[in-house]
């Protein structure tokens, strides 16, 4: 019984951390003034945001039923492999399109 409560706390903790980081990433995407700064937002959302949510899901389903259920690892792995590639493609497209960059008021 005590075990189950602790696991519940763990699941809740990871869910909150994950959604908080996804939210911060989206706020960054909303606030930053130029494209290359906005590019840093999704990096947060993919790494810790989705990562923590998937860890929470793994923890929840592995302890709820019989046996280990870790197939969320596949999504984490795929996102970790694909996120740098899409960031690289986006940066290349932006350089080629010559998007406006933000100049600081000094």
């Amino acid at each position: 019984m005590l075990m189950a409560t602790w696991i519940e706390y763990g699941v809740a903790f990871f869910l909150l951390i994950g959604s908080a980081f996804a939210l911060v990433g989206s706020i960054g995407l909303h606030r930053f003034p130029d494209f290359f700064m906005r590019l840093h937002g999704p990096a947060k959302a993919t790494t810790l945001g989705v990562g923590c949510v998937l860890i929470a899901s793994m923890l929840y389903f592995s302890t709820k039923d019989e046996g280990l259920h870790v197939h969320e690892l596949l999504i984490t792995l795929f996102l970790m492999l694909s996120a740098p590639v899409s960031a690289y493609m986006l940066a290349k497209a932006a350089v080629q399109q010559q998007v406006k960059t933000f100049n600081r008021k000094d």
Binding site: F36, A43, K44, P84, A87, Y88
Partner: peptide, 25 residues
């Protein structure tokens, strides 16, 4: 390049194979 892009705050934007220079934002 993946490690640089995955760490928030830095993004590897282009790889120059000729001069072997990574451009990082």
């Amino acid at each position: 390049a993946s490690a640089i892009s995955l760490a928030p705050g830095t993004v590897a934007a282009s790889v120059d194979r000729e001069r072997s220079i990574l451009t990082v934002h």
